[in-house]
Design a binder for these strands. Structure first.
Length: 426
RNA sequence: GGAGAGGUGGCCGAGUGGUCGAAGGCGCUCCCCUGCUAAGGGAGUAGACGGUUUGUCCCGUCUCGAGGGUUCGAAUCCCUUCUUCUCCGCCA
């Protein structure tokens, strides 16, 4: 969400930012409504001022028992009444138009974000770790999982349709182990506070983080007024909605392990096999709330927190800086982590860390107060996966597979696997 | 799901139609007094928006959970909605 005043004073920068996103300029349209609004407001407020003064006179007249004077004044002001009521109605209409327009505009990218259309224009930042070599043809994760008898898409389809999976035995445990490991790392070493949030939220929460009003089709909605969260970014960020935070409490860092639900509208036919793209998946999410001047540094830090998971799991990955065309709605800058999948013979996204600036803070009305200063300033928010558990399991299976179809449990997960060191057919 | 009671400024808490943006207290800021500390006295202390000016001045409008309505006038009355608490029922 943008500040009207800012657009008024920086209309060129605003349109230039939209252009980088591949969007048409909007400042002229917005400022036209803005001007209409201010003209209208002035007339309305003058009328209201007149009415308020008169009302006080009436109050005084009544208090002093001068009924005649009061009656005369009332008759006088009554004329303004209709104008004010219509004026208030008009004001609401104009505000709605402006809000509808503003709330559907994506955040403007940072200057260093590469301009581009899609993922092909993303910028490689660094590559980390070594890709494992195999003396056999590495299989894809679903072949491994199904051969083990622990990953069952057909059974899932029977009860839930496509894009679901039933994990069992050691693989169900592996999912839990991965989550546990990630949470222990993010809470124990990186300072994140573990949270167990709701996974059903109302529209205003989704509006706050930017999924609504524009991306409703990506969400699952209940028969009531709830939506299933597409990511824990939503509940974690909304923890601070409508809050004024004392400066000393920043930064705040939250992490949560939750299921995520996505309709995957528009991605029919993509990644139809396996666990890469599911309607439901588990994820450990990180959210930071910071002061404006520290948010860029926080993004580097958060990305590092996500990378650490991959490093300790011994997985090779690369860091991509997303181009303007590939970034999400609320992001100013985004780093994707892409893990190496030998079965697929390619890198696949496993984490996405974004700094949103004050974009979400404005929508949620989240501010912080500096001691001794008047008023509040909007906080900056960040979110990132640390990591997507389902895809991490995919990566573990493909990278740690053996010629005989078994899978070695990575060293750091062993404490969580209850003695299982190799996952194999019993 | 049924019955009832609330949501007021950074916090606590008065206020049931007329100079109420709101008593009082706490906290905070400044000043005075007191040779540290403690205590005391005085003043100040919401935000958004608009106008004006770009001078951190002034004026106006709106905001007492949110949104409508009644009225010349609403924190106060009516409707809708969100939310908190208590009791009952149901339940993992």
């Amino acid at each position: 969400m943008f500040d009207l005043k800012w657009i008024r004073e920086n209309s060129e920068a605003f349109d230039a930012g939209l252009a980088k996103r591949g969007a048409a300029p909007l400042s002229i349209d917005i400022l036209k409504i803005d001007e209409e609004r201010r003209d209208h407001l002035k007339a309305l407020q003058d009328a209201q001022a007149k009415r308020n003064t008169a009302s006080k006179e009436i109050g005084k007249a009544k208090a002093s028992g001068d009924e005649a004077a009061a009656a005369a004044a009332i008759a006088e002001v009554a004329k303004i009444k209709e104008f004010i009521q219509n004026g208030e109605e008009t004001e609401r209409e104009i505000d709605e138009r402006i809000n509808a327009l503003l709330s559907s505009i994506p955040n403007l990218p940072h200057d260093d974000v590469p301009i581009g259309n899609d993922e092909d224009d993303n910028e490689l930042v660094r590559t980390v770790g070594e890709q494992p070599s195999f003396d056999f043809e590495p299989k894809e994760h679903f072949d491994i999982g199904e051969a083990l008898g622990l990953m069952d898409f057909e059974t899932a389809a029977k009860m839930s349709g496509s894009r679901f999976v039933v994990l069992s035995g050691a693989l169900a445990r592996l999912e839990r182990a991965l989550a546990q490991f990630m949470l222990d790392l993010q809470t124990g070493e990186h300072g994140y506070t573990e949270v167990s949030p709701p996974t059903l939220v109302k529209a205003n929460a989704l509006y706050g983080t930017g999924q609504l009003p524009k991306f409703e089709e990506d969400l699952f909605k209940t028969t009531g007024d709830h939506y299933l969260i597409p990511t824990a970014e939503v509940p974690l960020t909304n923890i601070v909605a409508d809050c004024i935070i004392d400066e000393g409490y920043l930064p705040r860092r939250f992490t949560a392990f939750t299921p995520c639900f996505r309709s995957e509208a528009g991605s029919a036919g993509r990644d139809t096999r396996g666990m890469i793209r599911q309607h439901q998946f588990m994820k450990v999410e990180m959210v930071s709330v910071t002061k404006p001047e520290l948010s860029d540094a926080e993004l580097e830090r958060m990305t590092g927190c996500a990378e650490e998971v991959l490093k300790r799991l011994g997985l090779s990955y690369r860091v991509m800086k997303l181009c303007t065309g590939d970034m999400g709605f609320g992001a100013r800058r985004t780093y994707d982590l892409e893990v190496w999948l030998p079965g697929q013979n390619m890198y696949r996204e496993i984490s996405s860390c974004s700094v949103c600036g004050d974009f979400q803070a404005r929508r949620m009305n989240t501010r912080y107060r500096v001691e001794g200063e008047k008023g509040g300033h909007f906080v900056h928010t960040l979110n990132g996966s640390g990591l997507a558990v389902g895809r991490t399991m995919v990566a573990v299976l493909e990278n740690y597979q053996q010629a005989d179809g078994s899978v070695v449990v990575p060293e750091v997960l062993k404490p969580y696997m209850g003695g299982i060191e190799i996952i194999k057919v019993d």
